[in-house]
Amino acid sequence: FSITQFVRNLGLEHLMDIFEREQITLRVLVEMGHKELKEIGINAYGHREKLIKGVERLI
């Protein structure tokens, strides 16, 4: 299971460039909250919320 699959499953594949540029893996994403996601350029609250909720389902 990769970050690419995870992001695609959430319908947020347009954010993949950010994850690749910042070298974010699923392991790193698990540790990130709204503040960190915003810092790397994910400005939409809804997108950040989707990512965080998606990660919570993985754990």
Rank of each mutant, 00 (worst) to 15 (best):
F1I: 13
F1L: 13
F1P: 10
F1R: 06
F1G: 09
S2K: 07
S2A: 09
S2Y: 08
S2M: 08
I3R: 02
I3A: 05
I3P: 02
T4Q: 14
Q5F: 08
F6L: 09
F6P: 00
F6H: 00
V7L: 15
V7R: 01
V7A: 06
V7E: 00
R8C: 09
R8F: 10
R8T: 14
N9Y: 13
N9C: 15
L10V: 06
L10M: 08
L10A: 04
G11V: 03
G11D: 07
L12N: 01
E13V: 10
H14A: 10
H14Y: 13
L15W: 04
L15K: 00
L15Q: 01
L15T: 02
L15A: 02
M16E: 08
M16L: 14
D17Q: 12
D17G: 13
D17C: 11
D17I: 13
I18F: 06
F19Y: 02
F19Q: 00
F19R: 00
E20R: 13
E20F: 08
R21F: 06
R21G: 05
R21C: 05
E22Y: 13
E22I: 06
E22R: 12
E22Q: 12
Q23D: 08
Q23A: 12
I24A: 02
I24V: 10
I24T: 05
T25C: 05
L26Q: 02
L26K: 01
L26M: 13
R27N: 12
R27G: 12
V28C: 13
V28G: 11
L29C: 03
L29S: 01
L29Q: 01
L29Y: 03
V30I: 14
E31Y: 15
M32S: 04
M32K: 02
M32G: 01
M32T: 01
M32V: 03
M32E: 00
G33E: 02
G33R: 08
G33C: 05
H34Y: 04
H34W: 05
H34G: 03
H34C: 04
H34K: 02
K35T: 09
K35P: 09
K35I: 06
E36H: 05
E36A: 06
E36R: 06
K38H: 08
K38M: 13
K38P: 01
E39L: 10
G41I: 04
I42C: 05
N43D: 14
A44M: 10
A44W: 12
Y45C: 07
G46A: 15
G46D: 15
H47N: 14
H47S: 13
R48S: 03
R48I: 07
E49A: 12
E49N: 09
E49M: 13
E49K: 12
E49Y: 10
K50V: 09
K50N: 05
L51I: 15
I52P: 01
K53I: 09
K53Y: 07
K53C: 09
K53F: 06
G54K: 04
V55P: 01
V55R: 05
V55K: 05
V55A: 12
V55T: 07
V55Q: 02
V55Y: 07
E56A: 14
R57G: 08
R57A: 15
I59W: 09
